[in-house]
């Protein structure tokens, strides 16, 4: 196997989902542009170019409202599964391991291995930060995406309001507006549904070969076992 083919195979999960993301984002832009222009045309206003739509608040809010909920989902999942358990689920850790676990189990500080990340072997703040870096990044991306949703959301909301001959509102007013919370909560509920159903379905159902599933022959009682 050549080095290039090996790289593609070894990173296929990230590459395929990354490419899928770009393709679907492009599809969303094309469909969103057509929908936006349909509204403008119906109101006898001039349609916007594709490039103009990509820079519009309408497109930005539709993108960021989904981003924030996805990052929230992963933040809650990463953080929540430290403590929350589901008997029989491969998404859960073993039932006696609830909590941050011992240094030995986590291979940090004096228990770090030669191939452990350097900051896992470090002491103090660096180790504490690195030990929470995945959740911290997801939480940061969630907060930034949610902030971006609110900023682009108020612009899109006000643009539509002006088309409907209504007064624009401030960013602070928008944070309490039904539009902001409708966009936010419709995404949160779907993410929580997906996580909750995955946790319980994976107790009883299997997907052969997937690390998200238990081995096909594993007991329904087996917890924290990945296939």
């Amino acid at each position: 196997m050549t080095r290039d083919r090996s790289f593609l195979r070894d990173n296929s999960l990230t590459l395929v989902f990354g490419a899928g993301f770009l393709l679907t984002l492009a599809g969303q832009a094309i469909a969103g542009h057509a929908d936006f222009n349909n509204q403008l045309t119906a109101e006898e206003l001039h349609p916007v170019s594709f490039g103009g739509y990509l820079l519009s608040a309408d497109f930005a809010v539709d993108v960021t409202e989904n981003w924030q909920s996805e990052y929230l989902q992963f933040f809650l999942y990463i953080f929540g599964t430290v403590w929350l358990l589901q008997r029989g689920s491969p998404e859960s850790k073993q039932l006696h391991k609830a909590g941050p676990e011992s240094d030995a189990e986590q291979k940090v500080g004096q228990y770090a291995k030669p191939d452990s990340p350097r900051w896992a072997a470090a002491q103090g703040a660096r180790q504490a930060w690195y030990a929470r870096s995945l959740g911290t990044l997801m939480c940061t991306l969630f907060l930034l995406s949610w902030l971006a949703q609110s900023v682009t959301g108020v612009a899109a909301y006000n643009e539509q309001h002006l088309r409907e001959l209504q007064a624009p509102i401030s960013w602070f007013d928008y944070l309490g507006a039904a539009d902001f919370w409708s966009r936010t909560l419709q995404n949160w509920q779907s993410e929580l549904l997906a996580v909750g159903s995955m946790a319980i379905f994976s107790v009883y159902l299997r997907q052969r070969g997937s690390p998200e599933s238990k081995p096909v022959g594993a007991s329904h009682e087996a917890t924290g076992v990945e296939g």
């Binding site: 001039h46 103009g52 519009s56 006000n158 643009e159 002006l162 088309r163 007064a167």
Partner: peptide, 17 residues
């Protein structure tokens, strides 16, 4: 007030969109 491609202009006697 300008948002995207829409605007509201308030004058001393009128409001225009």
């Amino acid at each position: 007030d300008v948002y995207g491609r829409q605007a509201r202009v308030v004058t001393d006697k009128d409001t225009l969109f």
